[in-house]
Design a binder for these strands. Structure first.
Length: 813
RNA sequence: GGGCGAGUGGUGAAAUUGGUAUACACGCUAGCCUUAGGAGCUAGUGCCGCAAGGCGUGAGGGUUCGAGUCCCUCCUCGCCCACCA
């Protein structure tokens, strides 16, 4: 009987559907929560990249369940979002229809690869029963001061006349129509993620995440320790406050720069400079974010005609505006110290501004290698960029700071600034509050009602969800399509009953995905987003797997939500995802990123029908380490398919008694495979299973119980085939109700091992020995090897290094 | 400019963490079988060399009995961030 993947996979998928494996009730003690990033249900269906991460976690989940753990492993859909809405603009087909159809397709595809999701817990963010709680969470944040409304510059597409999210701006242009994106000042809704900047930073020390993701989040949060310094303005009743990380260089400040958008510019600018300053501000405002950052080669600026007083030495220094200073960072103003900052140096040279040296570089010093204890001759050369020195050193020309090292000088000047009420130590963060409102249709409506007299009022909880209306025109106008819906827009104020209007913006879809893993814990609950006990039973998530592209968006937002919900008493922990792993991109066969335009997209359906679900699962895991980028090679699928066929054929050579010669290898395989699965190292686990299969094939026989163990080890990877073989072995119950095999430590000890013999460090032969053989025995064996003795003849043995079981090295002269 | 990571056969990749480099698989070569095969089986396959032997993990140094692995100096590639004061 040949291995017929199609009938086997159909048969078992049907059985799993009819009697899904119990995932345990919510009061179980021995629980794990395995999570994969839920997909956006795109019209093009499941991608091989989805298969990669879902298969990996499915395998670990199946093993843990066989080891007696209750594992929550849910799936859902991140169903709101732009593509469906854009499709509606083009075709008039309602996003709800497009999305529902795509979800159908995804579900069918996911089931076709035999993933053991708990389908009872499936969620969709576009479902009113889901977004009702997204809205509820918005109101929770609103009532607790974590959601607020403010004016802010946002990305504006001139052609689509609509706001774009940062991620929808590609190289300064609209991703949809490729036209220019400019900055526009609009009033928007924000979440106060900045309140959590420090905790989001320090919390990372407690979680097992890839260093790369942590680094990206740290960089995004952008903590910077320094000081503020207040400069009074000559002939004006005004103070310019600047932020600097080098307060120790205050004596070297020779001018002050404000961002063009800085609020004080209007007040300070001298009449004779007004025309120039205005022209510069207009020009800067027109520049896109792209131009302002990428055309950084040339710095430009304009003198305002005003002067500031350096508080530490009473020097009168000019105030400039320049767009190399960002209004959004620090105080939007800097003190320029050209002698010790490259940007200021460049600017000062261009505009002939004075450069004053206040830090002396340290002298050259010899560095001792602490490991060796002797000088290795390496030296640290101080970095001198022509006349600009940016490293630490010793203060000079700095009055009270003279002769102090940079660190000491910082401390001293900060104290002085504080004492004199002129500023002092200050830490800033680069992260900005999260802009969550979108002038879009296909998202969760923001549950706020605007009243002339009462201001923004939360929609009463018993009126949630605020359901998306259907009487809308999707054509972009610059306003949310919801404005056009009379049934939606015109309401009464919940506080005073006066006529009022409903907020017409919807929420960023990242709000939906910031809490979805909580909904899985209790997906049918209509009293709360989830029951606290159920959350605490499963959460935090033990293992989270998904793409690295979400490093500073979803993964940061979800952490913020978790911290906020913790503080408000809704969850019992701060960090939501204890362990995170990123799957590497699967590239096209040509080594390029898969894309429709390149025509190198591999459709998993075709692989499933031709080779089988078990083969595609196994193949994607066998490709290489989960976290690496790997090119797809359809020919490689043949290899794992052959392996499955070999396993299938082993049925023909089953014997009743265990085959002695396979016993050690079997137990070593149990050990290796179990450990590898735990670490998500499926490629080496599969290789080990192949070796065992090859060994059994060569031996021409395998014991019935030995075969059963092999099938069990294979079960998480190739669930359909393993179920079938398990049944053929005479079992009535699913293989996944069986107990995961354990190895016998006594059986993994080799009685004989092959060991290399080196002469002067070069391998010259090998000997077969007991692993605990004595040095004399090892030497005797080595002398019996003529290739070894050839190199020993006529030489004196100086030294013998013998590491039992590892190596014998004979040093001769 | 900053951060993270990687360079091993023709290809995807292994290497018990300092102990016989290239496991496993693809591909390729030869042979067998077959009407045929994008099927199966057997053997071979790092490089140079007829051989003995030599050389081999991006390059060059170092430590060590022994280095893909540790240390130093470089080179190349990938990803992310970037006028952040």
């Amino acid at each position: 009987m040949p291995y017929d993947h199609q009938s086997i996979e159909k048969k078992w998928q049907k059985k799993w559907e009819e009697s899904p494996e119990s995932q345990g009730d919510d009061s179980d003690q021995d629980t794990l929560y395995h999570l994969v990033m839920f997909p956006y249900p795109s019209g093009s269906g499941l991608h091989v990249g989805h298969v990669e991460s879902y298969s990996a976690v499915d395998m670990l989940t199946r093993m843990e369940r066989m080891r007696g753990k209750k594992v929550l492993f849910p799936m859902g859909y991140d169903a709101f979002g732009l593509p469906a809405e854009n499709y509606a603009i083009k075709t008039g087909v309602h996003p709800a229809q497009t999305t529902a159809k795509a979800i159908e397709t995804f579900r069918t595809q996911l089931k076709s690869i035999g993933l053991s999701f708990d389908w009872d817990r499936e969620v969709s963010t576009a479902d009113p029963d889901y977004y009702r709680w997204t809205q509820w969470l918005f109101l929770l944040f609103f009532k607790n001061g974590l959601a607020y409304r403010a004016k802010s510059p946002v990305n504006w597409c001139t052609s689509c006349t609509t706001v774009l999210a940062n991620e929808q701006v590609v190289s300064g242009a609209c991703e949809r129509c490729d036209s220019e994106v400019i900055q526009k000042e609009l009033e928007q809704w924000f979440f106060k993620i900045t309140d959590y900047a420090e905790r989001l930073l320090t919390g990372m020390d407690t979680i097992d995440w890839p260093e790369k993701i942590k680094a990206m989040q740290r960089n995004w949060i952008g903590k910077s320790v320094g000081a503020t310094v207040d400069f009074s303005v000559v002939d004006h009743d005004a103070t310019v406050s600047v932020f600097t990380t080098r307060p120790d260089t205050l004596f070297g400040a020779t001018y002050v720069v404000l961002a063009p958008e800085h609020a004080l510019v209007d007040q300070l600018v001298a009449d004779e400079s007004r025309t120039d300053v205005e022209a510069y501000r207009v020009a800067a405002g027109k520049k896109s974010a792209l131009e302002r950052t990428e055309l950084q080669k040339v710095k430009t600026g304009v003198f305002t005609g005003a002067y500031a007083i350096n508080p530490v030495n009473d020097e009168k220094i000019p105030i400039w505006i320049a767009d190399y200073v960002m209004v959004t960072y620090g105080t939007g103003a800097i003190m320029a110290v050209p002698a010790h900052d490259e940007r200021d140096f460049e600017f000062a040279k261009k505009y002939k501004l004075p450069i004053k040296k206040v830090v002396e570089p340290p002298v050259l010093q010899e560095v001792m290698n602490p490991d060796v204890g002797i000088s290795n001759g390496a030296q640290t050369q101080v970095k001198i960029i022509t006349d600009c020195f940016t490293s630490d050193g010793t203060a000079v020309n700095s009055g009270l700071l003279d002769c102090l090292k940079t660190n000491e000088a910082k401390e001293k000047i900060n104290g002085w600034l504080t004492e004199n009420g002129l500023g002092g130590a200050k830490t800033t963060y680069r992260i900005r509050d999260w802009l969550v409102s979108r002038q879009r249709y296909w998202g969760a409506p923001i549950p706020i009602i605007w009243c002339e007299s009462c201001g923004p009022q939360p929609v009463p909880e018993n009126q949630l969800p605020v359901v998306l209306p259907n009487d809308v025109d999707f054509k972009p106008t610059g306003e949310s399509p919801l404005v056009g819906s009379k049934t939606f827009h015109d309401v009464t104020c919940p506080a005073c009953s006066a006529p009022a209007r409903r907020e017409s913006d919807t929420m960023d879809t990242f709000v939906d995905s910031s809490w979805y893993y909580l909904r899985y814990c209790d997906p049918k609950n209509d009293q709360a987003f989830a029951d606290r006990e159920k959350i605490d039973n499963w959460c935090p998530v033990d293992l989270y797997v998904g793409g690295a592209e979400h490093a500073v968006m979803h993964l940061l937002y979800a952490r913020f939500f978790s911290y906020a919900l913790h503080d408000l008493g809704y969850v019992g922990y701060e960090e939501p995802f204890v362990k995170l792993r990123n799957q590497g991109l699967i590239l096209g066969p040509d080594g390029d990123k898969m894309s429709k335009s390149k025509g190198n997209v591999v459709n998993p359906d075709e692989i499933v029908s031709q080779y089988g679900a078990d083969s595609i699962r196994l193949y994607e895991m066998f490709l290489g380490p989960l976290e690496d980028e790997k090119p797809w090679d359809t020919k490689g699928v043949v290899g794992v398919r052959r392996f499955l066929e070999k396993v299938w054929k082993l049925q023909d050579i089953i014997v009743l008694e265990p085959v002695e010669g396979l016993e050690t290898q079997l137990h070593k395989t149990i050990k290796k495979v179990t450990g590898d699965y735990e670490e998500l190292r499926f490629n080496t686990a599969i290789a080990k299973l192949m070796e065992l299969t090859n060994a059994a094939t060569s031996a021409g026989k395998i014991g019935r119980d030995q075969y059963a163990v092999l099938v069990q080890l294979l079960a998480p990877l190739a669930p359909h085939l393993s179920e079938e073989l398990w049944e053929l072995l005479g079992h009535k119950e699913s293989i996944f109700t069986s107990t995961w095999p354990t190895f016998d430590p006594k059986k993994i000890v080799d009685t004989q091992i092959e060991m290399g013999v080196q002469v002067n460090g070069k391998v010259r032969g090998s000997v077969v020995l007991a692993p605990d053989a004595s040095e004399d025995e090892a030497m005797a064996a080595a002398h019996a090897d003529e290739n070894v003795t050839k190199y020993l003849d006529g030489k004196d043995v100086m030294k013998i290094i013998y590491v039992p079981g590892r190596i014998l090295n004979i040093v001769v002269k």
